[in-house]
Write a protein that binds this DNA or RNA. Structure first.
Ligand SMILES: [Mn+2]
Ligand SMILES: [Mn+2]
Ligand SMILES: [Mn+2]
Ligand SMILES: [Mn+2]
Lengths: 218, 218
DNA sequence: ATTATCTTTTAGGTATACCAAAATTAATAA
DNA sequence: TTATTAATTTTGGTATACCTAAAAGATAAT
């Protein structure tokens, strides 16, 4: 199996299993990897052979220790590059993901550690995702989704779970950047639309968007 | 044909044809690409289809205008990355080539131009090779090989045509870095070994090594 | 001009990474 | 529990990028 293929599978399995439970089902993978379910079955069989995953037929897949280790190193590369692109090279948080998708496959520990050092070993990437350290250790935080927030409470935007250009540009337009203070003014009972105040301006957030915004209670 | 494959062929054809004449023969390509002559034939047929090269059966291959344009852009990426790795990220000139072999395939003009700007739009990479500008224009220089140098003359080291770690470490050991002043003390008639003085120390250079050293007459 | 040698091409074949359609298995609803 | 639906796997197939060995073509030496 080509190294880049292995890496894209493992990274995707990692991302899917850290959100939801531990076991990933084929359909999710087919979606994220933009390949057919039939191809996913084949891929997982090979990754099982390589001992990167435990793949149980018609049930689901989870990473082995070796698989998780490799996955974490790719996630580290991806997030370090995103941070470097944003902080050192002047790219917007809506531009970095696409470039990092390619850069993440360049395997050179010295390079990544050098970038990390230059950045001051950051804990979070431009989207608020935690960056694993050189040993693969990740900082756990207990933030909530904005969709779980309460009326009349204050929050700080800590991350986003959708990296699409459209969403990130929308947020930026309303000054909803990482670290921004948010006051939840009201929640529409009918459709869970949230009206909040950010930088003294009122912004209406759909429930779909609120699902993708990670906040910390202030 | 995969983009990375196309790029590696074109870059290699470019490098071979800029050294020697304009036409590249299959064997050279097979060598540089580390694949069989049979595979080269197949590859060239496809590149001809794609109109990146003019491939004449059993004769040789040269780049079309489109092929040269793409080749130049890959050479630019490669050399900009090498320079960035060396100047901004602290890598040695013996380390940068290998990493740049991977980085050169990341296609993002904004990224390369940003790196170039940070570096002050350099004209030469860490090995003295000219860096094409954003339009593909390259600075021509008329340096000679050290193997063509004359006794009792003074030169300045301007580049190397071999990027192997062993050779670059050897040069560095004797302070033979880009820009170093060289005085040719003598040339052994028997085997063309060159004895030169660099930083007041005598160094003996084999004819093979001298072939790989590019110098300017001072 | 003919042979010997070296280079290139063709023929036939492998491995990877995909796919669509059919068959199977699991989950859900009646 | 039995249909119905949905997810997964199997089957058979494509395209890319390589390979080795044999055939054909070009070059050089006698
Ligand atoms: Mn990302
Ligand atoms: Mn990727
Ligand atoms: Mn190089
Ligand atoms: Mn390359």
């Amino acid at each position: 199996m080509r190294q880049e293929t292995v890496e894209n599978y493992l990274k995707t399995i990692y991302n899917l299993s850290s959100n939801n439970s531990a076991v990933v089902v084929n359909q999710q993978l087919a979606n994220k990897l933009s390949i057919s379910p039939a191809s996913v079955t084949e891929g997982l069989r090979k990754l099982h052979e390589l001992k990167y995953v435990v793949y149980e037929k018609s049930y689901g897949t989870r990473l082995t220790t070796a698989g998780a280790k490799l996955a974490l190193s790719i996630v580290r590369r991806h997030r370090i590059w995103e941070t470097y692109l944003a902080k050192e090279l002047g790219f917007g948080w809506d531009e970095v993901h696409e470039i990092a998708e390619e850069l993440e496959h360049i395997k050179n520990d010295k390079l990544i550690n050098k970038l990390s050092t230059i950045l001051g070993n950051p804990m979070f990437d431009p989207h608020g995702d935690p960056i694993p350290d050189a040993k693969g250790k990740i900082k756990k935080s207990n933030f909530i989704k904005l969709s779980e927030a309460k009326t009349k409470s204050n929050y700080k935007l800590m991350g986003v779970t959708d990296h699409s250009v459209a969403f990130l540009k929308f947020l930026e337009k309303h000054q909803l950047i990482i670290g921004a203070n948010i006051e939840v003014k009201g929640i529409e009972e009918f459709d869970n639309t949230i009206v909040l105040i950010c930088n003294k301006k009122e912004v209406t957030i759909s429930s779909k968007a609120a699902e993708c915004m990670i906040v910390e209670t202030v």
